[in-house]
Amino acid sequence: MTNTANADTEIRPFSVTISDAALDDLRNRLNNTRFADTVPGAGWERGVPTGYLRELTAYWAEKFDWPAVEARLGTYPQFTTTIDGQNVHFLHIRSPHADATPLLLLHGWPGTVLDFNDMIGPLTDPAAHGAGDAPAFHLVIPSLPGHGFSGPVTETGWNDGRIAHAMAELMRRLGYDGYGVHGGDHGAFIAPRIGRDDAEHVIGLHVNSLVTFPTGDPADMAALTDADKDRLARMKKFQDDGSAYMQLAGSRPNTLAQLLADSPVAQLAWIVEKYQEWTDSAKALPEDAIDRDKILATVTIYWLTDTAHSVANYYYERFHDVAMFAPQAKGTTPTGIAVFSAGDYAIRPFAEKTHNVVHWSEFYDGGHFPALEVPQLLTGDIREFFQTLPR
């Protein structure tokens, strides 16, 4: 690992500019896709239906407005810096309130910095968004190393611990001595790690989509509520019938990466399947839960930045990290956990064995992607949690 004391610590302004050639190449690939035949009558239970994928691909090629995405990103101050030899891209939006709390927001996969777009205004300037008494935040929103505009990782070893170290270094480099962290999906693994490794600076951490596992204690199992048992059963179903993507990425990332690097429609199918399966189960199609253009913005970013292989290798690093699921002491950082019914399997008695849980919320709208599905609920819960913490 590179010694950050001797590394390039410059923070450089950044703007997203994609060449016409790259966009023309994308459109040509979309228009020349060879779609797979499917078994008549097959639905989402076998993966993305070809008819749906064909229609979504045509929309992507003909109607999706990438310049509008660039313009939206351009409204935020963006920067890059080098940490541990890796380029790190981030948004840094300071609140107009001088006493605002610094907050690190961590996306997951599939996800980008744009996941938090609808939360930026309400979190940085609550008074301007109808919540005058709510706490305000200075926001740091990085593209995780190997994801999106941070670009591909340039060496092996970028696991959760190394990313947590890089994120803590980013906050130190920006001059934040005390800060909070929120994360979902990948971020729900990384945020608690930051809370452990940088406990003297992290005032609190808030997560959704936290993964919890049975403790092995019969008393814990006997105390489970019906809702807890339902979550445990859904987690078992996910492991049995929904985790193939993770097993493939975690065991053969290079093979998967070649498929995704050569075909934007493969990238689209790979990602949109997750939006279908992990969003609010009451929604029939992915775009019923998340705006179609937001889904395509995410897919386009992963395509244009050529980071599919880095994402796949991130799962490999996690699967082969001996420290990942090793027994560890209970964390001391105050922790808030938001559980969204369709996309979370977190069980409080299990969570309390390893985290200092001081705040627990359960919601019946939204799924695995609350920042995109129900941003107002996630924003409110982040506010409520941090408002209770000493600063």
Rank of each mutant, 00 (worst) to 15 (best):
L139R: 02
P126V: 05
H138V: 04
A134W: 01
F137C: 07
H147V: 01
H138M: 07
D118E: 13
H129R: 09
A134E: 07
G146T: 04
P152T: 05
G121F: 11
P142Q: 12
P135N: 03
S143T: 04
D115A: 04
S150H: 06
N117Y: 09
I141D: 02
P126D: 10
F137R: 13
N117H: 14
H138F: 08
T156Y: 13
P142N: 08
T156L: 09
N159P: 05
D133W: 10
F149S: 00
G157M: 15
V153F: 02
W158D: 03
A131Y: 11
G121R: 14
A136M: 12
F116S: 01
G157P: 12
L139K: 12
V153S: 02
D160K: 15
G121K: 10
S150L: 09
S150G: 08
A127N: 05
P145W: 10
T156Q: 13
A128L: 15
L123N: 07
G151Q: 00
A134V: 07
G151A: 03
P142V: 07
M119V: 04
P145C: 09
L123V: 12
G132E: 13
E155I: 02
G151S: 00
L139S: 07
A136F: 15
D133Q: 12
G132N: 06
T124A: 01
M119D: 03
V153I: 15
G151P: 00
D118I: 05
D118T: 09
F137D: 06
G151L: 01
I141H: 02
D125C: 08
P126L: 05
H147D: 00
A127H: 10
L123A: 07
P152F: 04
I141A: 01
L139W: 08
S143R: 01
D118H: 14
V140F: 12
P142R: 09
V140Y: 06
G157K: 11
H138P: 01
D115P: 00
A127E: 11
P126M: 09
H147F: 15
H138Q: 03
P126F: 03
L123D: 06
N159K: 09
G151T: 02
D160N: 15
T154F: 08
A127V: 14
P122H: 13
W158C: 02
P126Y: 04
G146E: 07
G121H: 10
F116P: 00
A134D: 15
W158A: 02
H129F: 13
G146N: 06
A131D: 09
T156P: 06
I120K: 00
P135E: 08
H129G: 01
G157Y: 15
G146L: 08
E155Y: 12
P145D: 09
A131L: 15
L139M: 12
F116I: 02
I120Y: 06
F149K: 00
A134G: 06
G157I: 12
I120L: 06
A134L: 15
M119W: 10
A136T: 03
N159G: 14
F116V: 02
P145I: 05
S150P: 03
P142D: 10
P126R: 04
V140A: 10
N117S: 13
G151E: 01
P152M: 05
L144S: 06
F116H: 03
S150T: 11
L114G: 02
V140G: 10
A131H: 13
G148M: 04
L144C: 11
